[in-house]
Design a protein around this nucleic acid. Structure first.
Length: 562
RNA sequence: GCGCCCGUAGCUCAACUGGAUAGAGCGUAUGGCUACGGACCAUAAGGUUGAAGGUUCGACUCCUUCCGGGCGCACCA
């Protein structure tokens, strides 16, 4: 767990070397130690460009002088100056020891509120909901792993004029004795849209129905609650499949009572004005204002987000709030944060929009070429059945094949979603999302499975895993590479948190799986001397645990067989 | 028109935030089944990093302009 410790130690020593070589006291930051590109020898490298500026000497000269001044003791096996670079090769034994050193205590003490998933009531969860859901879920777990207090919030789209339409549709076309599904609700909504084209009176009726709902009319409220419960029940099935949970399931409706006080608060600060019949906040330096109320008096999305933000800060005193919402809504968040800042809330700067790219099908946004919405559940089911097919072929004797197929199939879809930088647009492709070879979820799971297999076999042979086994028999390049990768975990997590970027963790887990696969291929664990077997089992077990942990952070299961 | 995002191998993407000869996977070609699990390992071919300038000892990365794609730009969320 301690690549950082090794780097800090070496940075300190390098600083000392600068002192002895040049008599100057220049700081050497551990972050300057980077990994040299492949053809070059070494595990860490210092480019002497910054020192060159400070010391006013050519960087190559500095590298050479430091190579001499740096004592080649303990973790260092070799020190060599290559042009302006100082390349450090670490002793394999020390790298391996470092990987098993105590984990640095979690230093983060903040609270992060993560706002994610946020599906709309009376609509299905479609494939494009996967992005917010899994990116947000991963961000929650990344911060928990770092020691943050995390509040994962599902801010449902459960309010707005759409519910007036739904209520009207319900009253006209639904037999209330029947229990509706989400499909039924959605159909009512669509039907309303069609009928309203021919009959404008319907729109008026819908507005009235929503007004009644806002005023707390009993029947409207009961209907709305029913729609909400039905939808939530269906969402939950998908969340169960994905292993996603929330600390707070709220929604826009929850902040309804806060809207007037929020507007009053802004008004008291003299920020609110009227424009074209609407209530707005003018934003300094912006051409267009942020709307609080439509000219008909109804509140808007921005108003509810303002109220929700204020409420979250009051209740959780967050040090960071992340909104995992697609990039198309960037302007909305710019405006909301600007209003909060203008209102004098210093915590406005701690709110971050975490945008992600648009999902498309063959070039069309959110829909297939045929115009249908692709349901998330259908994709997950398809992935599961494809995985099951492969399991039947490769592991016909596997018990509980269905469970494993679900873990592998869904793992493939989720990993595919998280492996790329989130700002990239995605043109969803079944064969790509459901690929099981190469840089995929199943590839990572398979590395874990192979390690589990060897551990199982060891147990059958009566060889117990010794968590305190002597590591000194280790030293092969594959073992060193594996250990070094293990010790980079903390840095990967921190970067993922800093950039709110789960793909950093996905990349880490892929690299670790690659190192483990190579290890499995090249290094015999059980067909070795007892001391080697014990040490390799311990190393392999650490790698497999880390893979499981990394996958868990991404919201992906790590089966023991597949 | 203005603002934000994207443009890297045939395809999908990396590149530790300005450092070395730009790296992976897929696909293609080849090798490894006397396999601690082949959903794997390995070798090879494949590049003017959209274009042109600029800053710098040094640019995929920063600045300017342009080209191409996407998304926004007050009463939807």
């Amino acid at each position: 767990m301690a690549a950082r410790r090794v780097k800090a130690l070496l940075a300190g020593r390098l600083q000392q070397a600068v002192r002895t070589a040049f008599g100057a006291d220049e700081p050497v930051d551990a972050a300057q130690l980077q990994t040299p590109p492949p053809p070059h020898e070494g595990d860490l490298s210092l480019g002497c460009f910054a020192l060159s500026k400070k010391l006013r000497k050519p960087p190559a000269e500095i590298a050479a002088a430091l190579a001499k001044a740096l004592p080649p003791e303990k973790p260092l096996a070799k020190v060599q100056a290559v042009g302006p670079y100082l390349n450090l090769t670490l002793e394999a034994a020390d790298v391996i020891q470092a990987a098993f050193g105590p984990a640095p205590a979690a230093t983060a003490t903040g609270t992060v509120v993560v706002d994610f998933s946020s599906p709309n009531i009376a609509k299905h969860m479609a494939v494009y909901h996967l992005r917010s859901t899994m990116i947000g879920n991963a961000l929650c777990r990344i911060h928990r792993a770092l020691g943050w207090k995390v509040v994962g919030v599902n801010h449902l789209g459960d309010w707005g004029t759409g519910f007036g339409k739904l209520i009207v549709g319900w009253k006209r076309w639904w037999d209330p004795r029947q229990e509706p599904t989400v499909t039924d609700l959605n159909a009512l909504y669509v039907r309303f849209g069609q009928k309203a084209k021919a009959d404008p009176k319907l729109e008026e009726e819908a507005r009235a129905a929503f007004l009644a709902l806002e005023k707390g009319d009993g029947e409207s409220r009961r209907l709305w609650q029913r729609f909400r419960d039905t939808s939530l029940g269906e969402f939950q099935k998908v969340y169960d499949l994905l292993g996603v949970s929330f600390d707070e399931v709220s929604g826009e409706s929850v902040y309804e009572p806060d809207l007037e006080p929020t507007i009053a608060l802004l008004r008291a600060k003299g920020m609110v004005s009227e424009s074209e019949g609407a209530l707005v906040v003018a934003l300094p330096g912006k051409e267009k204002p942020c709307l609080l109320k439509k000219s008909d008096g109804a509140t808007l999305y921005a108003t509810r987000d303002l109220a929700a933000a204020i409420s979250h800060q009051k209740r959780h005193a967050f040090t960071r709030k992340l909104y995992v919402v697609d990039a198309g809504q960037s302007l909305h968040f710019v405006e909301v944060f600007a209003v909060l800042a203008a209102a004098g809330f210093e915590w406005a700067s701690r709110c971050e929009h975490v945008p992600f790219g648009i999902l498309r099908f063959g070039g069309k946004r959110g829909r297939t070429r045929e115009g249908g919405v692709v349901l998330l559940k259908d994709v997950l089911d398809e992935a599961t059945s494809r995985a099951l097919e492969i399991i039947r072929k490769n592991s016909p004797d596997l018990a509980d094949a269905h469970t494993v197929a679900r873990q592998v199939g869904i793992g493939a879809v989720v990993f595919n979603d998280l492996k790329n930088k989130r700002t990239k647009d995605i043109d969803f492709d079944f064969d790509e999302a459901l690929a099981f070879e190469g840089e995929t979820g199943p590839y990572v799971q398979y590395a874990h499975v192979r390690a589990c297999g060897i551990l199982r076999k060891a147990k059958e042979a009566g060889i117990a895993l010794d968590p305190a086994a002597d590591l000194s028999p280790l030293g092969l390049p594959e073992e060193k590479a594996l250990a070094w990768r293990l010790s980079l975990w903390g840095e990967a997590l921190e970067r993922a948190s800093r950039e709110a970027e789960p793909s950093v963790v996905a990349g880490y887990v892929l690299d670790l799986a690659k190192a483990l696969h190579t290890f499995h291929y090249k290094v015999p664990v059980l067909k070795a001397s007892p001391a080697e077997t014990a040490a390799r089992l311990r190393l392999m077990d650490a790698a497999r645990l880390r893979l499981a942990e990394g996958l868990a952070v991404l919201g992906i299961a790590a089966p023991e067989q597949m």
